[in-house]
Design a protein around this nucleic acid. Structure first.
Length: 539
RNA sequence: GCGCCAGUAGCUCAGUUGGAUAGAGUAUUAGACUACGAAUCUAAGGGUCACGAGUUCGAAUCUUGUCUGGCGCGCCA
C-alpha cells in the first residue's frame, strides 16, 4: 500500500482513539524539505487543536502516544506543533518492486468511467498554425494524455469553422491565385489571404484539375471546399509531427445541417428578444454581464449561435465534461457559453475552459514577431524545424497556461544542462546506459540495500508520482508534470554522482541500485510521455 | 469606465484547501573526471513576495484599498 496513505490511516486511528473522526482527505502529509524534519511531516495537531481545546504541541503529544509505530523509526514534535515522521528504510524500498511490476502503468489511476471531451486548436483552416496555436496544441494534448492516464475516457476534438466568412475569403483568394496562374485578370480581395501558401494551394489545384475551374458556374465554392481540405491536411500533418492526433474533426456546416440552428432558436425562444431588428439572447439572466446577439438584423447568424448548437451536440454524445482550450483573448466568451448551456439545464461546470495566455518568441533577448524567412507569422512547422518537437512541447507545457510564456529560442536549441529538456532526457539516457552496461547482473527488486541519502530521496520521490498525476489531472495543469520531471531528473543525477551503481565486487548493493535505476527510468519515461516528449536511450 | 489574468532573486518562473529559515532554473563566483555518459555534481552570494490596512497562534497564500502591466468589453470569428 501507498506509504502516505498508510501513515494517514495510522494518524486517523490515533485521532479516533482520542474521539475525533476524520477522513483520509482531512489529513495533510507532506514530504519534508529538510531531512532534519524527517521523511514526512504533518500539521494535523495544529489544524485540529481547536477540537481538543489544547495547544498544538500538547495535541501532538497525545496523538503520538496513540500512534501505531510499525514501520516508523521515530517521531518528533517540532516548531509550533508539526509531527515529523522518520520511516524505517525497508518501508520505503518496497516501492521499487511496485514500479517495476506495473511498468508503464505505474502512476495510472483506475478507470473512473467518466467521459471527457477536450476541444483544442480549432484554428480556421485558412493558413498555417502559429505559435499561439502551438501552445494550445501542446497543452491540450498533454492535458488529454494526463486525463487519460488519470482514468478518464478522453476524446480529442477539433472544431472547423467552415461556414463563416473566413472560408469564403479563402475560396476567393485561392480562386484569384488560380486565375493568376493562367495569366487571367484576377481580383484578390482585400480581406482575403495574401500569403505564399495560397499560391501553393492554387498550384496544387491547377495540377489536379487543369483549367476546369475556369468553366465552373460557381468556382468560388469549389475553391472554398478544396482549399479548406488542403489547408486542413497541412495542419493535420504539422500536428502529427507535433505528436498531436485528434479523434474527431467536427464541421460547423454539418452541425448546422438538419435545421439544428433553427431548432435551437425555437428552443431558446423564451430567452430571446428583438432589438433593432436583431435577435438577442438574454445571457445576463445567468452568468454574463451583457446580452448577446445571435441573429443579426440581416438574418445571418453570429458565430455564437451555431457554437451553442455545437456544444449541445457534444454533450448529447454522452460526455460528462467538456473542456475548451482557448486563447486568453477569448475569456469574454466563457460566461456567455456557460449561460447558454444553463438555458439547456446543464450545470455551469459541465464546461471547463482552459485559457492559454500569450506566447512571445524570444531570440537574442528580443521578441521575434515574425519569421525571418517568410516575413509572415512564425509557424508551428518552423518552430519544430528550428528547435525540435521535444523542446517545443516541453517548453510549452513547462509553465502554467494562465501565465504568459516567453519562449527562449536560444535556450531551446541549447544542447546542454541549461536546457531543461536535455537535462531530463540525459538523465534517462544515463540510466539506460547503466542498465545496458550491466545486463548480465541480476536485478534485485526488493531493493533491500538502498540506504544512502540520495537513494532514499529518490525512493520517496518516485513513490509520490501517482499523487502528482492526480494533482495534474484535477487541476488540469500539465506544468506540474514538467516540474516533477525536472526534480526527478535532478535526483537521478545526484544519485548517479554519489552512488557508483555497477560494482562487480559488491553485487548485492549493485543489484539493489540497478533496481532503483530501472524504477527511476520507468517513472521518468511515463512522465515524459504525459507531456509528449520522447525518452531517448542514447543522445 | 467595467470585467478577466497577472505583479515573488538581475532574468524566466514554482510556491494558491493559510504552516517550519519563501524555492528552482538561468546568470555570476569558487570547486569536483586514471571507473557506470562532466549534456553531470558540490558550494557561495543574490529578496521590502508591487504598496498600505485588516483577519489569527501564523499570510506570498484569505479580505479590502491603491499602483503597474497584458487581454477583453462588435449585429467579428
Amino acid at each position: 500500500m501507498d506509504i502516505v496513505i498508510e501513515l494517514k490511516t495510522k494518524l486517523l486511528e490515533a485521532l479516533k482513539k482520542m474521539g475525533v473522526n476524520l477522513t483520509v482527505d482531512d489529513i495533510v502529509i507532506e514530504n519534508s524539505k529538510d531531512s532534519s524534519h524527517g521523511d514526512y511531516a504533518t500539521n494535523v495537531a495544529m489544524k485540529y487543536c481547536k477540537e481538543f481545546q489544547k495547544p498544538p504541541r500538547e495535541v501532538a503529544n497525545l496523538i503520538l502516544s496513540n500512534l501505531d509505530m510499525s514501520g516508523i523509526d521515530k517521531v518528533e514534535i517540532a516548531g509550533p506543533g508539526f509531527i515529523n515522521l522518520f520511516l524505517k528504510k525497508d518501508s520505503l524500498q518496497s516501492i521499487v518492486k511496485t514500479v517495476i511490476e506495473l511498468d508503464n502503468n505505474y502512476g495510472a489511476l483506475p478507470k473512473n468511467g467518466k467521459k471527457i471531451n477536450v476541444e483544442f486548436v480549432s484554428a480556421n483552416p485558412t493558413g498555417d498554425l502559429h505559435v499561439g496555436h502551438a501552445r494550445g496544441a501542446a497543452i491540450g494534448d498533454s492535458l488529454c494524455r494526463i486525463l487519460s492516464f488519470a482514468g478518464y475516457e478522453v476524446t480529442r476534438e477539433y472544431y472547423i469553422n467552415d461556414a463563416g466568412s473566413q472560408i469564403k475569403h479563402l475560396g476567393e483568394s485561392v480562386y484569384a491565385r488560380y486565375r493568376e496562374l493562367f495569366g487571367l485578370d484576377f481580383n484578390l480581395p482585400e480581406d482575403g489571404y495574401h500569403g505564399q501558401d495560397i499560391i501553393d494551394i492554387a498550384k496544387i489545384i491547377k495540377d489536379e484539375i487543369g483549367d476546369e475551374a475556369l468553366k465552373m458556374e460557381d468556382p468560388v465554392s469549389y475553391f472554398m471546399r478544396r482549399g479548406q481540405d488542403l489547408e486542413l491536411e497541412k495542419i493535420n500533418r504539422d500536428l502529427q509531427v507535433f505528436r498531436v492526433k485528434f479523434d474527431i474533426f467536427s464541421s460547423e456546416l454539418k452541425i448546422r445541417s438538419n435545421k439544428a440552428v433553427e431548432k435551437e432558436l425555437e428552443y431558446l425562444s423564451n430567452h430571446l428578444y428583438r432589438e433593432e431588428g436583431a435577435l438577442v439572447l438574454k445571457t445576463t439572466d445567468f452568468l454574463d454581464d451583457k446580452d448577446r446577439v445571435v441573429v443579426k438584423s440581416n438574418g445571418e447568424y453570429t458565430y455564437f449561435l451555431p457554437d451553442i448548437v455545437y456544444h449541445c451536440n457534444k454533450l448529447s454524445r454522452g460526455f460528462d465534461q467538456l473542456i475548451d482550450v482557448l486563447g486568453a483573448d477569448h475569456h469574454g466568451y466563457i460566461n456567455r457559453m456557460k449561460s447558454a448551456l444553463m438555458m439547456h439545464g446543464y450545470d455551469k461546470d459541465v464546461l471547463d475552459v482552459s485559457l492559454i495566455q500569450m506566447v512571445r518568441i524570444m531570440k537574442d533577448g528580443e521578441e521575434m514577431k515574425a519569421s525571418k524567412r517568410t516575413g509572415n507569422a512564425y509557424t508551428l512547422r518552423e518552430l519544430c524545424e528550428d528547435v525540435g518537437v521535444d523542446a517545443a512541447r516541453y517548453f510549452f507545457a513547462m509553465r502554467a497556461s494562465t501565465s504568459h510564456l516567453d519562449f527562449d529560442m536560444n535556450l531551446a536549441v541549447e544542447q546542454s544542462s541549461t536546457n531543461p529538456v536535455y537535462y531530463a532526457q540525459y538523465a534517462h539516457a544515463r540510466l539506460c546506459s547503466v542498465l545496458d552496461n550491466s545486463s548480465d547482473i541480476e536485478i534485485d527488486i526488493s531493493a533491500k540495500n538502498l540506504k544512502e541519502k540520495s537513494e532514499i530521496n529518490l525512493l520517496k520521490f518516485i513513490q509520490n508520482w501517482p499523487n502528482v498525476v492526480k494533482e495534474a489531472s484535477d487541476e488540469k495543469a500539465p506544468y506540474k508534470i514538467t516540474n516533477y520531471i525536472h526534480s526527478l531528473a535532478e535526483l537521478v543525477h545526484v544519485f548517479y554522482t554519489e552512488c557508483r551503481v555497477i560494482d562487480r565486487d559488491n553485487l548485492s548493493v549493485t543489484s539493489s541500485r540497478l533496481a532503483l535505476c530501472k524504477a527511476s527510468k520507468i517513472v521518468l519515461e511515463n512522465a515524459l510521455n504525459l507531456v509528449g516528449v520522447s525518452a531517448p536511450s542514447h543522445m
